[in-house]
Design a protein around this nucleic acid. Structure first.
Lengths: 158, 158
DNA sequence: TATTGTTATACTCTATAACTATA
DNA sequence: TATAGTTATAGAGTATAACAATA
């Protein structure tokens, strides 16, 4: 995860011509995304959370009682992929799978006290890392960027 | 890849509370990134290219003679992961692995005529899809967004 | 000793088909 | 029949260690 210099010190400072790829917003989006994701992975590591288990924990704390289907929908992942995520959080006693009396097929997901405490610590840590990562971007620009990103996202969902 | 409605028609229009995650730019970045990547995957499918083989092809066409190490560095991936990508492009006769007389460890990568033709068609297709995807974002805003994304990326490389 | 390309391996995220038990 | 959760499986992308050939 740490970023070492990969090029040898003896190389002729080869600069690859990026011009064609640089024409595309998607290219810049990917490069920035990689940096942010790597930072997030690194931030979550001490808490023994992956990006997906982190997102799931946050959504369960903020939406007590939601079902796995609803959670998968919110996380924009397929239900089969959510099972192992919920398994992991449950085994670590961060959440509970409670049976729903009115629909015995579904589970109501709830965070334990331990889960709620971990939530608070991780959200604070992620916020601090984000702040450092985006320190060079002024609030006005950040708003513009977020608005644009939301517009792009809406293109996908129709 | 296609986006179907996942929620059942009978559900109570459950809206998951995103508030905590929405505070983070990274969250919006991920959602937008997913849309753009899905669109790119879909765009490249008719050409039988994946995102990585596409990027590699573009960089080889634009940088004839570069080595696999240099290409891996430009693509920001590990050298072992590049091997299968180059294998695939070579087997499809889109590129050639030429031996470098001055350093017999390295390969000089070059696109064939077939590779150059595929490059032209795919770049045009990707450009058209990008234009459609970002149509709602005015040029001024796009520039602001790209500048911000480049700033974020630079945080990762130091 | 260091580098290029390679193999083997593993982890994360994503995607689909098919099963079970309920509704 | 349809849905909730599950299992199995497969494809991508990413990461590290270790090796042979070469520098």
């Amino acid at each position: 995860m740490e970023k070492q210099r990969k090029t040898s010190p003896t190389d002729k400072r080869f600069r690859c011509n990026d011009e064609t790829l640089q024409r595309f917003v998607g290219y810049h989006l990917k490069r920035a995304f990689n940096v942010v994701q790597a930072d997030l992975t690194h931030t979550l590591k001490p808490f023994e959370l992956r990006k997906l288990t982190y997102s799931a924990l946050v959504l369960i704390v903020d939406n007590p009682g939601l079902s796995q289907s609803q959670l998968a929908d919110a996380m924009d992942i397929e239900r089969p992929n959510l099972v192992v995520i919920v398994d992991e959080l449950e085994q670590r006693e961060l959440i509970l799978r409670e049976r729903v009396p009115t629909d015995r097929r579904a589970y109501a997901l709830r965070a334990t006290l331990k889960g709620q405490r971990l939530y608070k610590r991780t959200v604070a840590a992620v916020a601090a890392h984000e702040e450092a990562l985006f320190a060079q971007i002024d609030p006005q620009t950040r708003e513009t960027v977020v608005a644009a990103l939301m517009l792009i996202r809406s293109q996908g969902t129709g």
